[in-house]
Amino acid sequence: MQQNLKFVYQHPLLSENDLEKLASKHQRTEFKKNEFLLREGEISAEYYILESGIVRGFVHDYDQNEITTEFFVENDIVIVPSSLFQKIPSQENLQAVMDCVLWKISYDDFQELFHEIEGFREWGRVWFSYQVFSMKQRSLDVVMKTASERYLKLMKEKPQIIRNVPLKQIASYLGITDSSLSRIRREI
């Protein structure tokens, strides 16, 4: 079984047999730098587990500027939940920042396994709870932490982003200008 799938799907209620079933429904896929996994307006039909590379989520603001909403790194689940689960057009774009290897599972296969494997349902509940917590924490960080603190947190939690992602994308993710990010990097 693919190691990163085993890492992502770890839960005490998932047996080795369950993990093998899950793995059998994933397909290895690759995206080259700048290729889109999902474009704004499309309806997501799958999600991915990132084996290597970096993917970013972004939207266009009212002036058509790209605003990075998320970075996905190794072992992250690359997903736009609202589009996948509600079957609505995505407001976000998912784009490879660098060449990526991912493991894709279709919505239909996910649903089948979700209903069949009790441990997978429990894993999903825990994963979604963590995502809600993370989103809430990120919105609190924007209000309660300085730009420097947010940058240092990103540097600590996902250093590969600092090393591999263009500054303009990092700055928009942090909610600051490119020049502010350059100043912060000089001061640190």
Rank of each mutant, 00 (worst) to 15 (best):
E92F: 08
A147Y: 06
P81N: 13
L140W: 06
V73F: 13
F120A: 08
G41K: 09
F128W: 11
S182T: 10
V55T: 10
K156N: 14
L94R: 08
V101A: 08
A45N: 13
T29W: 12
I43W: 04
L5W: 09
I188Y: 02
G119K: 06
L38M: 10
L22P: 02
G41E: 14
Q169A: 12
A45C: 07
F58D: 01
L152E: 15
E16I: 12
R39E: 15
N75T: 12
Q95H: 05
L19C: 06
V101F: 03
K33D: 11
I161K: 01
Q10A: 01
T69A: 07
E187Y: 06
W103V: 01
V78A: 07
E40I: 04
G175T: 12
I161E: 07
R150Q: 13
L50M: 07
Q10C: 00
P166I: 13
E157N: 13
Y48W: 15
I88K: 15
I117S: 09
P89T: 09
V78I: 15
G119P: 04
E122P: 00
S24A: 15
W127L: 02
F71I: 10
S52R: 10
R150T: 11
D99Q: 06
L37C: 09
E118N: 10
R121L: 05
S106P: 00
V80Q: 08
Q169H: 15
S180D: 05
K32P: 00
E16W: 04
Q86I: 04
T29L: 15
Y62A: 10
P166E: 15
K6G: 01
E70T: 11
V73A: 14
R125G: 05
E51S: 06
Y62I: 07
R39P: 01
Q27R: 14
W123Y: 14
S179N: 07
Q91D: 12
K21Q: 15
